[in-house]
Design a protein around this nucleic acid. Sequence first.
DNA 1: TCCATGTAGTCAACTTGGTTGTCTAACCAT
DNA 2: ATGGTTAGACAACCAAGTTGACTACATGGA
Lengths: 149, 149
Amino acid sequence: MEPVPMLLAMTYRAMGDQFHDRLRQIGLEPLRPAHGYVFRFLKAKRATTVDIGQHLGVTKQAAAKIVNELDEWGYVLREPHPTDKRAQYVTLTTKGRDYLKLADNLWSDLENEMAEAIGRDTLDAVKTGLAAYLRHVHGEDQPGLRPAW
Amino acid sequence: MEPVPMLLAMTYRAMGDQFHDRLRQIGLEPLRPAHGYVFRFLKAKRATTVDIGQHLGVTKQAAAKIVNELDEWGYVLREPHPTDKRAQYVTLTTKGRDYLKLADNLWSDLENEMAEAIGRDTLDAVKTGLAAYLRHVHGEDQPGLRPAW
DNA sequence: TCCATGTAGTCAACTTGGTTGTCTAACCAT
DNA sequence: ATGGTTAGACAACCAAGTTGACTACATGGA
């Protein structure tokens, strides 16, 4: 059997490719994975560019580029931080939230198809297993999200 | 619960980081993941540069760069293809096989620690589950190995 | 209160790891 | 034979990161 990391990489790639294809079928401009992960992160918590960089596992400069793009395209906007005059909160616009909602539906479709293919219980085991491993290696502080290739 | 692809990416990243750290602890020059995947591929079957590119999920030119590096560093060598005068088989040197053996040991250490953390049965479910999914979406023809970020 | 140290964000230069495009030589099916 | 395809090499380019430097603001002592 293939080593775990190869299985992870191949599955990630396979799901990502399918997601990308379906987005294009719908006719929606396919943002890169990083963009989607930013949306999801912003939905969960208020965050600055630095926070986003940390979450993605890239430098703040790289994160700033991504935020700039999302801003230009109208998916997010910046608002002043209430107490820190240096910082800015990055927040989702309606367009951003709509995109995220659509993407979430697509992902859950894919996940359901996966459940159908390998069994719901196996899928659950995969998810809880990976989540448990992540809690084990890092405590509560997330690792970088970006796969280092 | 986080969507599956995020779990995959985070786990891949977490394991890769650990692997990388331990290689450095040993004092071994840490090649990139792609290099290791090439070793593993070459061990399994005779392959040309084009084959390698396909397996990794990159263009043949990108694959050629990687093969060139591995050649310079003494991990692989090229030998003429028996029937096709255009093509060359890329094969592991002893140095390459040694590196792979060491890396394999490291990976199996990591996998054992994972088994300890989440339970051997859960780990088995993860592996068989992902493998089954991959067989389901692509038939027998592998997807690209490289995660598209 | 003042000062030392640290941090958010921005700008610029650079590196890396890929891409596309083009070409030659060899292959192969009609 | 010959027309279409393929392996490999060379070159130009590009995307997405990096490091480094700087400004403005924050924060926690002495």
